[in-house]
Design a protein around this nucleic acid. Sequence first.
DNA 1: TCTATCATGTAACCAGTTACATGATTTT
DNA 2: AAAATCATGTAACTGGTTACATGATAGA
Lengths: 203, 203
Amino acid sequence: MSTRRKVGNLLGLAVLSSLAQGPMHPYELSRTMRAHGDERSVKFTHGSIYMVVEQLERAGFVAEHGTERDGQRPERTVYGLTGEGRRELQEWMRDLVAEPRHEYPEFVTALSLISALPPADVAALLTRRLDRLAALRDEARTVVDGALTAGVHPLFLVEEEYRMAQLDADSAFTRAFLARLDGPDGWTRTWQDHHDTNPEEIP
Amino acid sequence: MSTRRKVGNLLGLAVLSSLAQGPMHPYELSRTMRAHGDERSVKFTHGSIYMVVEQLERAGFVAEHGTERDGQRPERTVYGLTGEGRRELQEWMRDLVAEPRHEYPEFVTALSLISALPPADVAALLTRRLDRLAALRDEARTVVDGALTAGVHPLFLVEEEYRMAQLDADSAFTRAFLARLDGPDGWTRTWQDHHDTNPEEIP
DNA sequence: TCTATCATGTAACCAGTTACATGATTTT
DNA sequence: AAAATCATGTAACTGGTTACATGATAGA
């Protein structure tokens, strides 16, 4: 990562945060994070948790807190936060909240190459996109409503609110783009020209 | 990637798109993409281009088109798009435009763990964030204005417009969040309580 | 001519993903 | 009791980042 953080993966942050509630073994991290619905906000899989815990240990942010054994199941190593780990958690969080960074959403890339598609096709594709955006928005809404009626405090749902706000902005942009395509302000014209003069056939 | 695309890296898409203009060697890809300002929309470095070209070749999307030599500089291998590559470019673009996917912006992760910070601190951090968001917005505006006066067609700047829309939504959300923090609707209360009852000290 | 920067590529390393291994429990 | 699923972990592979290597030109 560009950051000079010793562990750059955001999954590491989520693990630090979980361990702030008390020591756990990696599998338990996996379970509780999954149960808590964290997979909507952090990308992780079973395997990646073991990896990141290892990294955090190398960096001195977590340390072995003992080992347990339960019947003949494999022995589990329990990890706990170190002082350094606690400090890193705070600092990292403060940084993320205060400093937005330049990211690379897939749609940005696609837009930057949009002239590779013929304009008529793009109109159809954007229309389809509006549908899908609405579906994602509904999904978020459902998650939030479900959690609220289950008694979760709204504070623990702000990330979904943010997501919805971004989805709304995406929809609005998409609609505006569509409008410019339909309108006779010359957009489609130059675009089509660009296509015609750019044979793109180099066999 | 979740996609069953043979090459999942979006840099691969940008390379396919560049090669649609004609065969090139990797260094030239690097130069033209950089000159064209693509680094704002796709993350790449010198080294990653060589890597992705190799992957594209393994996948059959590009092929050696010959080798050149210029003086005693290292010999350059020129790559061109194959028929498969051209098809992949189209299909991939259509997919990206029509199907938004679930992504993991850093701020979403931070928000999902926001209760790890004390509420008073968060207010200050969000205020700082507003500044930084404004700066990023200005930056995008400047890029766009510069390009427009240099004669670039707006079609080639839509990705910056999108970025600005997302930044605006981010600002609006941040302001609303701040307002809820200040307001006496109980938010800060439960939050602070959560902090007090959650000692987070496991030394 | 010495030094800096450009042009071009390779290699070494670290991170992340996926698949696999194996005993325990639950379901049919 | 066979099949499926859960609990727990490791290993192998692939991808991405960084640092390095080396000749060529250009500026001081």
